[in-house]
C-alpha cells in the first residue's frame, strides 16, 4: 500500500508539472461553463441539472485525455521497465496510477463548485441534490478513469489510448438516448449499461445501491483488465 501511495504522489504531481493539466482544466471549465450558463437563465430555475446533464458526455471526452499517458508514456519511453524492476507489485502500480487519475478528475471538479455557490445567491438551491450530483460525478469519473487506464495499458501511443477510451466511454454516455434503436428484447440490458441513466439517478440526489454497484463494477472491470494486460506483457 505504501508503494501505491508513493506512485500516486508521483503521478499526481506529474499532472501538474506539465502544462497539459492546466490546459485541460481551462478548456473543460470554459466550455462546460459556457454551455451550462447559456441556457441556465432560460429555465429560470436555481438548480444544477443542466451542468450535471452535460457531465457524462464531457467526461467521456476529458477523462481519456487525463488517463491516456498513464501507461502509454511509460511504455513509449521505456521507463515501464524501470518501474517493473523496482520492488512494487502490479497492484501497487495500478492503484497508484488510478487514484492519481481520479484525484485529477476531482481537481477538475473543484473549480465548478463556484457554480452552485453563485446560483445559491440567485435562488433557493437544494444543496442535497448538488452534493449527490458531485458524488455521482466523482463515481462517473472513476468509472471512466478505469476504462482510460485500461486503454492506456494497451498501447504505447497516447493518441490511440485516448481514442480507444473515448470509443468505450461515449456509448456508455449516450446509450439511454438511443434506446429506441435497440430491439425490445435487449433494451433492459442496454439501459442498465448506460452510465448516463445511473448518473442522472444519483444526480437527482437518489443514491441507490444499483447505481453504486454499476459504477464500482465498471471501475473494477477496467482495473482488472489492466492487471491482465500487465501480466500478459
Amino acid at each position: 500500500m505504501r508503494q501505491a501511495i508513493l506512485i500516486f504522489n508521483k503521478e499526481f504531481r506529474d499532472y501538474f508539472a506539465s502544462p497539459i493539466a492546466y490546459i485541460v482544466i481551462a478548456i473543460f471549465l470554459a466550455v462546460i461553463g459556457w454551455l451550462f450558463f447559456s441556457t441556465f437563465f432560460l429555465f429560470d430555475q436555481a438548480d444544477m441539472r443542466g451542468f450535471f446533464g452535460l457531465l457524462p458526455i464531457f467526461f467521456a471526452l476529458v477523462v481519456p485525455i487525463v488517463t491516456m499517458r498513464l501507461f502509454s508514456e511509460e511504455l513509449n519511453v521505456g521507463s515501464y521497465e524501470l518501474l517493473l524492476t523496482l520492488p512494487v507489485t502490479f497492484r501497487d502500480i495500478i492503484v497508484g496510477k488510478y487514484l492519481a487519475a481520479v484525484a485529477f478528475v476531482a481537481a477538475l471538479l473543484v473549480p465548478t463548485l463556484a457554480y452552485p455557490i453563485f446560483i445559491s445567491f440567485l435562488g433557493d438551491l437544494d444543496w442535497g441534490v448538488v452534493a449527490g450530483g458531485y458524488v455521482g460525478a466523482l463515481l462517473l469519473g472513476s468509472a471512466y478513469a478505469a476504462i482510460g487506464l485500461f486503454a492506456s495499458s494497451l498501447t504505447r501511443n497516447q493518441i490511440i489510448a485516448c481514442i480507444v477510451a473515448i470509443v468505450i466511454c461515449i456509448p456508455l454516455a449516450i446509450f439511454d438516448q438511443m434506446l429506441y434503436f435497440f430491439p425490445q428484447s435487449i433494451l433492459d440490458v442496454f439501459s442498465y449499461l448506460s452510465a448516463n441513466a445511473h448518473f442522472s439517478n444519483i444526480a437527482k440526489g437518489i443514491i441507490d445501491s444499483r447505481d453504486l454497484v454499476y459504477f464500482l463494477s465498471i471501475a473494477f472491470i477496467g482495473l482488472y483488465a489492466t492487471h491482465l494486460v500487465m501480466e500478459e506483457k
Binding site: Q3, L6, D14, V77, E81, L82, T85, L86
Partner: peptide
C-alpha cells in the same frame, strides 16, 4: 527485485522529472 539494482539499456528515465525528485522517488520506493 529488492536485492537487484538494474539499469536498462540507454537509461529510460522519466523525462519530465527533475533529477533530485526522481532519485528521491526511487529512494522512497
Amino acid at each position: 527485485k529488492r536485492l537487484i539494482g538494474y539499469l536498462p539499456e540507454s537509461a529510460p528515465l522519466y523525462k519530465g522529472m527533475i533529477v533530485y525528485d526522481y532519485l528521491n522517488h526511487v529512494a522512497s520506493i
